[in-house]
Simulated assay, not measured.
Amino acid sequence: MNLAELVGRTNVDALDHLERETTIPVVDGLQAQGDLIIIPFSMFAGDPDPNASRWVPAEGIHLVAGGDGRNPHVLVADPGTCTWSAVGNPELGIGIIENTAPAYLLHPEHGGTGIAPGRWVVRRQRERTGLVAD
């Protein structure tokens, strides 16, 4: 998968300075994309509510966006290969990805990043009075 293919599957474009023909690496481990952190689920205890899971469609799911709805982080996967579960526990994260094939995050400023098959916790960077905590 390259950036042009990923952009083509969503309604989200990447900024012009990003090379469209760049192959997106698929990472099997801890990674970050801007203010989102992808963490192996094995580092956490507990399970998500299986009733909260939904399949990720080919055009993707917007996980988070700025207050004005711009600059979204979009989770993209082939149909039937990835589920997304939003969780309400801030200690656990904003959601859980379970994928049997590579899934991808797309962001206009950061481009794409690949997520190897597995179970992953998605957390968001938090800022508190001059302190940034991941």
Rank of each mutant, 00 (worst) to 15 (best):
M1T: 02
M1C: 10
M1I: 01
M1P: 07
M1E: 03
N2F: 07
L3R: 12
L3W: 08
L3D: 02
L6N: 01
V7G: 06
G8L: 08
G8A: 15
R9K: 15
N11T: 09
N11W: 00
N11G: 15
A14V: 14
D16P: 01
D16E: 14
E19Q: 13
E19L: 12
E21L: 12
T22Y: 02
T23E: 15
T23K: 13
T23V: 14
I24G: 05
P25G: 03
V26Q: 09
V27Y: 10
Q31T: 13
Q31L: 15
A32R: 13
A32L: 00
A32I: 00
Q33E: 12
Q33I: 14
D35R: 12
L36V: 04
L36T: 01
I37L: 15
I37K: 09
I38S: 04
F41G: 12
S42T: 11
M43N: 12
M43E: 14
F44Y: 15
F44P: 03
A45E: 15
P48I: 07
P48R: 05
P48F: 11
R54A: 13
R54T: 12
V56I: 15
V56T: 11
P57L: 11
E59G: 08
E59C: 10
E59L: 01
G60S: 11
H62Y: 05
A65N: 01
G66N: 14
G67T: 08
G67C: 02
D68V: 06
N71K: 07
H73W: 13
V74Q: 08
D78F: 00
G80W: 09
G80S: 03
C82Y: 07
T83E: 13
T83A: 10
T83M: 07
W84C: 03
W84G: 02
S85H: 00
S85V: 11
V87Q: 06
G88R: 10
P90A: 05
E91W: 03
L92D: 02
G93D: 05
G95E: 07
E98I: 06
E98W: 07
N99G: 05
A101F: 08
P102S: 00
A103Y: 05
A103M: 00
L105T: 03
L105A: 01
L106V: 14
H107K: 00
H107V: 01
E109V: 08
G112Y: 08
G112N: 09
G114V: 01
G114E: 04
I115E: 03
A116R: 06
R119G: 04
W120S: 03
V122I: 15
R123F: 06
R124I: 09
Q125N: 12
R128S: 13
R128C: 01
R128G: 07
G130V: 08
D134C: 07
